[in-house]
């Protein structure tokens, strides 16, 4: 029984004798080249896209437009702030002229009948 197993094992162990080397399917290099082309890094793809003249020009235009918009909107808001200040001053002056504003606590208390 033991001999039977040993014979089988020996036969199996020697089945790798005279093994021939396997080679890949034809056109291995073509498939490899195609894979290398597809697996370009994301940064390569981004840099090649950004360095296109049309894309670069569009990016510069976009930056200029954003800058102009920011400058314009900030100057407009500062102008409106100045206007609101002068309006407030006028209102105070009028109130003061017609004695509508109590300037201290004593006056405020004594205005009550």
């Amino acid at each position: 029984m033991e001999k039977k197993f040993n014979d089988k094992i020996d036969k199996t162990m020697s089945s790798f004798d005279d093994i021939e080397k396997a080679s890949p399917r034809p056109f291995f290099f073509t498939r490899l080249e195609a894979r290398m082309e597809n697996q370009k890094s994301i940064w390569e793809v981004i840099s090649s896209f950004v360095t296109k003249p049309m894309v670069a020009f569009a990016c510069i235009c976009l930056v200029v437009i954003i800058n102009a918009a920011v400058i314009f909107s900030s100057s407009a808001s500062s102008a409106s702030t100045t206007n609101s200040f002068s309006q407030q001053n006028n209102e105070l002056a009028t109130a003061d002229e017609y004695n509508l504003v109590s300037s201290n606590f004593y006056e405020y208390v004594n205005t009550k009948p």
Partner: peptide
């Protein structure tokens, strides 16, 4: 690639 593809693949 063509010289060593067999060795690597095997």
């Amino acid at each position: 690639v063509e010289t060593w593809q067999g060795m690597v693949y095997n």
